[in-house]
Write a protein that binds this DNA or RNA. Sequence first.
RNA 1: GUGCCCGUAGCUCAGCUGGAUAGAGCAGCGGUUUUCUAAACCGCUGGUCGGGGGUUCGAGUCCCUCCGGGCACGCCA
Length: 572
Amino acid sequence: MIYNDIRSVILAGLEVLQAAGVVPQGVDLSAVVVEAPKEASHGDLATNAAMVLAKPAGKAPRVIAEALAEELRKDARIAAVEVAGPGFVNIRLQPEVLLAEAAEVMAAGREYGKAGISGGRKALVEYVSINPTGPVHVGHGRNAVFGDAIAALLEKAGFPVYREYLVNDAGNQIRVLVRSLHARYRQLFGEDVAVPADGYPGEYLVEIAEALKARDDDKWLAVTDENELFEGLRAFAVEKCLAMIQADMETLGIRFDNYFSEHAMHQTGAMDEVVAMLREKGLVYEGTLPPPKGKEVADYQPVELTLFRATAFGLPEDQAVYNREGRPTYFGQDIAYHWNKFRRGYDYLPVVIDVRQVGSAKPLGFAVEAMTGKSGVYQPVLYEMVNVMRDGVPVKLSKRAGNIVALKDVLEEIGSDAFRFSMLTVKPTTIMVFDLAKAAEKTMENPVFYVQYAHARLCAVRRMATEAGLMLPEVSAGQGAARVKPAAAAVLKQVMLYPAVVEQAARKLEPHRLAFYAQELAGAVHSWYADEKFVDADDLVATSVRLQVADAARVVLADALRVCGVSAPERM
RNA sequence: GUGCCCGUAGCUCAGCUGGAUAGAGCAGCGGUUUUCUAAACCGCUGGUCGGGGGUUCGAGUCCCUCCGGGCACGCCA
């Protein structure tokens, strides 16, 4: 991978400068960036090293830049080095280096761009984790898409990755679900009862109630005891709701390695274990919380609760681990769950969470750090809501699904590929305006087709050459470099950057960078396609070179789409 | 009152731990196909990066402040 090679050469050059005393020993090189200049005329790659090091070295940036340039010129792969602007070092590669990269792509296949940044860590990516109380809405879909892409991205970056869904099958919401289901069930027998005001009004529960009736007949009709109903119907209700969720995940092509049952976890005394651990560290104690700030709470009563000492970490308030009824809070349960993940051998734990849960993310991070003795284990990835529109008008909510915009409906309308790519073209912390009419269009308004089309075109030219039975000669990079026209070189430059994009995106848990990269590469491909005729029986050498470049671009495009969870069709 | 997210072209959005002349798509205007897929390509128009101050060689990016929008702020989820 030439990008990594050149970066290594630059870092080695800086070491030489350190040895020569141009730059002091032991300076922080983490801010040194190697990137492709925005302006193509500035060269193929550039570094800001001289400007970053100017201050610690006490020298003018251009002085350092010239010294570095001198070192870089010794490398045979580098054709020219220029110092420009405030102190950029611009690097021009030998023409054959870019073409050689195409061969490297083909040799590596989908391993091209694979990074090794795990540092021995094992990742467990938790995403979706919707309460199994009803259908999936579009916002959840955003979570699913990002989580799945993060998992694929981390694998690409060299992590062992485990995909997990936390099934919240033990909390208060399940009690509410069971009460709602029971009301629907009684309605089926002609009773005049309403779904509880705080319950789930969606009509999907009617169908689940019918299934219950089909299985058990009137077995539960006369049961009124809350606990008996909960124990009796909990598993059934959860299973039915989870099946709806799984059907949507299936449509998105998402498969989890594990559905982790909170209920099962609690059977093992997980809460007692973590509470004891934290109590021993002085981080859990019995106490009372002050009344909530910023809003009036009429029924506030100071009650002694089991609290996590979040204030020890500079947070404004401690957090309850158990509620006044003695059941684990969400926060308490999360502590136990994350300790469980860690005990299973996973020490890098990205979790895609709703931005509204950010309040508990901070104390949880401290709790996890306290228990594991490591920092950076818990990695919350926040995502914002999605406003679904159609031609600028808000889409009406599905009554059947419980007054949400159901993901299922959206997927039926636009398909998984368009949905996933659309989600990934907006970074997750932006409140998203998602227009169904535009997402359905097969134009640049919907970039997934643009990218897929580039891939299909590249497949087409390879197919064309094969079907024509052309005997294409083997052309080495050195021989073929002169045949690479600027538009093809632009494609290769994008290809070359793929490893850098993967690494950067993985480090920051930002898969949307891959989606934007895919669009840029596709753009270079389309421009090139319009510029040159690929298959030319009268010039087999040039045809061979073009197809080498096309193949490399095709492989990288397909891989970027794969990480995004989007298909790469060979024909469109 | 406190915290978090956001504010970039008419619209939807990028902008990599501060870097070169702030980008893309759509919308608008004008071109390109007897040739491998026009779901494409090429060009033009469009910005005081919410306002102000500061830090420095350099700020859309960092700090302060104000304005505007969203979210969170019990033991809920």
